[in-house]
C-alpha cells in the first residue's frame, strides 16, 4: 500500500495482476457486477452530485460566488468547520482513551460499556438532539445550559461521533503485541517516550481514519445539533441549518452553492487526513 520510493528493489511485493491469470469469477458475472456498480454509483451518487453542481451555477459564476461569500453563509460554514474540527479532535483523544480502557483493562461492566459505545449510532440523531436539549437546554435538570453556544454544538457533535474513533482504534489495539514497547523500554526509553514514538505512530493510521469519518459526519450533522444550537443567524447557525433555511425560502441556487462550497472544503480536509494517514502508514507494506 504505502509506496516507499527509496527502496526500488523490494523483493517481497507480489507481481502486478496482468489480467490474463486465473479468474475465480466467470466473465459474464464479472461484467454484470461492473454494470451494477456503475449504474448504482451513477444513480445514487453521480447524478445527484451533477445536479447539485449544475444548480449551484444556475445564476452564473457570480451568483455562486455571491451566495458562498454572503456574510451569513461564511459564518455558518466557519462555525460548522470549527465545531466539527474541535469535536472530532476531542473525540480522537477521548476515543483513543476509551478504546484503550476497553482493550487493555479488565473491569466490572466492561461488556456493557463496550455495547454502549454504539448507542449514538443506533439512536436517530433527532432523538440525540432532544436528549441533549433536555439535559443541557433551558430547563436543564443539572442547571447547565449550553443552548445557543458553540460548546453545546460541539458536545452534540462529540456525542454522535464518538463511536467512529473508538471502533477504528479498538481492533488495532487488540492485535498489538506490545513487544516493540518492551524493546523500547530495554533501550532506555521512558513510558511517555514509548507512547509518543512507538504506540501513537502505530495507532495513527486507524486514529486518523476514525477521526476523518467523525469529522465528515460532523460537517453534515443536523438532527442532533438543531435544537441545542438555537439556529441564531451570525451566532449559532450551522451550515446544515442555513442550507435548510435557504431551501425553505425557495433560494435553491444559493442552497446548492453553499452546499457545494461546504463539500469542497470538507473534501480538502479529508484529503489532508488521508495524506497524514499515508505518512504514518510508511513501513506498513
Amino acid at each position: 500500500m504505502a509506496v516507499t520510493a527509496n527502496s526500488p528493489e523490494v523483493s517481497t511485493k507480489l507481481p502486478l495482476q496482468t489480467g490474463r491469470q486465473f479468474r475465480a469469477v466467470p466473465a459474464l458475472t464479472r461484467n454484470a457486477a461492473r454494470g451494477v456498480a456503475v449504474t448504482f454509483l451513477s444513480l445514487i451518487v453521480l447524478i445527484p452530485f451533477a445536479a447539485l453542481v449544475t444548480n449551484a451555477f444556475n445564476q452564473g459564476l457570480s451568483g455562486f460566488w455571491d451566495a458562498v461569500v454572503a456574510k451569513e453563509s461564511l459564518h455558518a460554514i466557519g462555525l460548522t468547520l470549527f465545531c466539527a474540527t474541535l469535536g472530532a479532535g476531542l473525540n480522537a483523544v477521548a476515543g483513543l482513551a476509551t478504546a484503550w480502557v476497553l482493550v487493555r483493562d479488565r473491569f466490572f461492566g466492561q461488556g456493557l460499556l463496550n455495547a454502549l459505545i454504539d448507542l449514538p449510532f443506533a439512536l436517530p440523531t433527532v432523538v440525540a438532539g432532544v436528549t441533549l436539549y433536555t439535559l443541557y437546554g433551558p430547563l436543564s435538570p443539572v442547571h447547565i445550559s449550553l443552548t445557543g453556544t458553540w460548546i453545546g454544538i460541539t458536545v452534540a457533535i462529540m456525542f454522535v461521533t464518538l463511536p467512529f474513533t473508538v471502533r477504528a482504534v479498538q481492533p488495532v489495539l487488540e492485535t498489538m503485541t506490545f513487544t516493540a514497547q518492551s524493546a523500547a523500554a530495554t533501550l532506555g526509553a521512558s513510558p511517555t517516550r514509548i507512547f509518543r514514538t512507538i504506540t501513537l505512530p502505530a495507532l495513527a493510521p486507524a486514529l486518523l481514519a476514525g477521526t476523518g469519518l467523525a469529522f465528515a459526519r460532523a460537517v453534515g450533522e443536523y438532527g442532533s445539533v438543531v435544537f441545542i444550537s438555537n439556529n441564531l443567524p451570525y451566532k449559532t447557525e450551522l451550515a446544515s441549518a442555513y442550507i435548510f433555511s435557504l431551501t425553505s425560502s425557495n433560494q435553491n441556487t444559493a442552497a446548492s452553492a453553499v452546499s457545494l462550497a461546504l463539500l469542497v472544503v470538507a473534501l480538502l480536509l479529508l484529503g489532508l487526513f488521508a495524506a497524514l494517514s499515508r505518512y504514518f502508514s510508511r513501513g506498513a507494506q
Binding site: T179, A183, P201, A202
Partner: peptide, 13 residues
C-alpha cells in the same frame, strides 16, 4: 540489558 524478542519486536514505522 540488550534484549532480543522472539518476534524481533521491530519498530515498524
Amino acid at each position: 540489558i540488550g534484549f532480543c524478542f522472539q518476534d524481533y519486536a521491530p519498530f515498524n514505522q
